[in-house]
Computed example of a mutant assay.
Amino acid sequence: MARLLSLLLLTCAAMAAQADEHTVVVKAAAPEKGCVEVEVNGKRAQSMSCLSEKLLPNSNTVKGPPPTLSGAEATVQRPSNQLGLYNRAALEHRMGNAFGKSVTPQRPTPAPPASPLLPAR
């Protein structure tokens, strides 16, 4: 047994010595962390936790400062009432109790005309 082992070692050493400059040695890349796909009863299923981790943003983008907004993007971020657009809360306030009942806004009742016979207060 020991003789067979020594013969095998000598053969491997001789083969390595015969390797010339045209021999290409290919090393396998380190396996990347990937998701495991399992097949059960003909149905394939992947690990949801692994897929969720792949969807997360890179750690270097999360820690960085937020990107600055251009002028147009900053304008879009403003509230609708500052832009002069429709705003339901502002419309309800302007219409008062006539909201949903009439197209004319609520106005205070007009004061009765003053009598010319009574002195002004």
Rank of each mutant, 00 (worst) to 15 (best):
M1L: 09
R3C: 13
R3W: 09
L4Y: 11
L5C: 11
S6W: 04
S6L: 12
S6E: 14
L8S: 12
L8F: 05
L8N: 08
L9H: 01
T11H: 05
T11M: 04
A14R: 02
A14V: 07
M15T: 04
A16N: 03
A16Y: 01
A16D: 03
Q18S: 14
A19L: 11
A19E: 15
D20M: 05
E21R: 13
V24A: 01
V24I: 07
V25C: 00
V26P: 00
K27I: 01
K27L: 01
A28V: 05
A30N: 09
A30V: 09
P31C: 13
K33D: 11
C35D: 06
V36E: 15
V36K: 15
V36L: 15
E37H: 15
E37I: 15
E37T: 15
V38Y: 11
V38K: 15
V38R: 14
N41T: 04
G42M: 08
G42H: 05
K43F: 01
K43R: 13
K43W: 02
R44G: 02
R44S: 09
Q46L: 10
S47E: 06
S47D: 13
M48Q: 12
S49H: 07
S49Q: 09
C50G: 02
S52P: 02
E53H: 04
K54N: 14
L55E: 15
P57Y: 13
P57N: 14
N58Q: 14
N58F: 11
S59I: 13
S59N: 12
N60W: 08
N60E: 09
T61K: 12
T61P: 04
T61E: 10
V62R: 11
V62F: 04
K63A: 06
K63C: 03
G64K: 11
T68R: 01
L69G: 00
S70P: 01
G71Q: 03
G71R: 03
G71K: 08
G71M: 00
A72V: 04
A72T: 03
A72Y: 04
A74W: 04
S80W: 02
Q82V: 13
Y86I: 05
Y86N: 09
Y86R: 10
Y86P: 11
N87D: 15
N87C: 15
N87E: 15
N87F: 09
R88N: 11
R88C: 08
R88G: 10
A89P: 02
A89M: 07
A90T: 08
A90L: 14
L91E: 14
H93S: 10
R94H: 14
R94Y: 14
M95P: 07
M95V: 03
G96A: 07
A98R: 14
A98S: 14
F99D: 08
G100I: 10
G100D: 10
G100L: 12
S102L: 07
S102K: 05
V103P: 03
V103T: 07
Q106R: 00
Q106W: 06
R107S: 00
P108M: 00
P108I: 00
P108T: 01
T109Y: 06
T109F: 06
T109G: 07
P110S: 07
A111Y: 06
P113V: 09
S115V: 06
P116Q: 10
L118T: 05
L118I: 02
P119R: 07
A120C: 06
A120W: 00
R121I: 04
